[in-house]
Design a protein around this nucleic acid. Structure first.
Lengths: 165, 165
DNA sequence: GTTATTGCAAATGATTTGCACAAGG
DNA sequence: CCTTGTGCAAATCATTTGCAATAAC
């Protein structure tokens, strides 16, 4: 787990006068030991597969806490549920590309995009705080070669695929 | 109401073998007689203020229909509920700037932004279908002059203001 | 007549909350 | 101790759905 996250969380815990509990630690550990996106229930499942025990309510409460602390971001992948992204501490300005074919989410950074959006906001008379860019796109692999590894593995894993619009 | 919308809706209705009902017509009319964003309940309230009668279920069903038809877009304003935007027929490529101070949503278009995002997707090996950009920003008026008309009117109207993060 | 549509009320599903008990500091 | 944290089950809230009645075509 990124020491930076550890430090910021500790600070937050201190400042709020919160306590150190095994459940919360296990949940935080589970979240930041991977760069996977997740929703509340997926996280709860992950926790249950470990030796640690924690209720669904505590999972929700911990997520809320981390979002408040700015360590976890709520993102919208367009699938009618809240998805959480643990990677904003490491890359505070990343964007998302969601594959329409297989649901795979690719994170990317682009200084030009960032700057251009920034300018747009200023032109409108605002000071930008946060920008969210999501690109939904089709896989060229699939188009050109008729197959795409991501799609195949998504099907095998039984992931819920994005609804075509 | 934009004749273009009328035409596309008519086509969709035809193609799907749907019927022409007064409830649906009233809801569609209410949606596209304004460029306001709304959520399901706000729309239901609007309908109830007119002489036409319609159940909440029908409102939901009509929204679903229009989203399927591509006439209405679901957007994420970050306030934990689905918001709908009726303006994508007129400006298919607009972006949103949300004021953190007063919640006002400004729609804007920018060909450069559009193009740059497009390139980013292609570089990653995808063919972009749809891009969603939301910029959250603070009002310079408020910062410089200590007041902003939007904020004042939002408070008067009792709008739910965005949560500060 | 058929089949889509509506309204109602009940069901759903994700998330939140009240409360009694447990456990950090 | 005192207060925060937890687990459970119940509550909430937006949305969806089953069904019987209604209305397009």
């Amino acid at each position: 787990m990124d020491p930076n996250i550890e430090k910021r969380l500790h600070q937050f815990i201190q400042a709020k006068g919160l306590r150190n509990t095994s459940q919360r630690n296990a949940i935080v550990e589970s979240i930041f030991s991977s760069d996977e996106h997740f929703n509340a229930d997926e996280l709860w499942d992950r926790i249950r597969k470990t030796q640690s025990r924690s209720s669904r309510a505590t999972v929700y409460r911990t997520i809320t806490l981390l979002v408040e602390a700015g360590l976890l971001h709520e993102i919208d992948l367009g699938d009618d549920q809240k998805t959480y992204d643990p990677n904003f501490v490491e890359s505070p300005a990343h964007n998302h590309l969601v594959c329409i074919d297989c649901g795979k989410v690719i994170e990317f950074e682009d200084a030009h995009i960032q700057l251009m959006n920034d300018c747009a906001a200023r032109r409108l008379g605002f000071r930008p705080e946060r920008q969210t860019l999501k690109i939904e796109a089709c896989c060229e692999q699939l188009r050109l070669h008729g197959r795409c590894e991501n799609l195949i593995s998504a099907r095998i894993q039984g992931k819920r695929l994005p609804k075509q619009r």
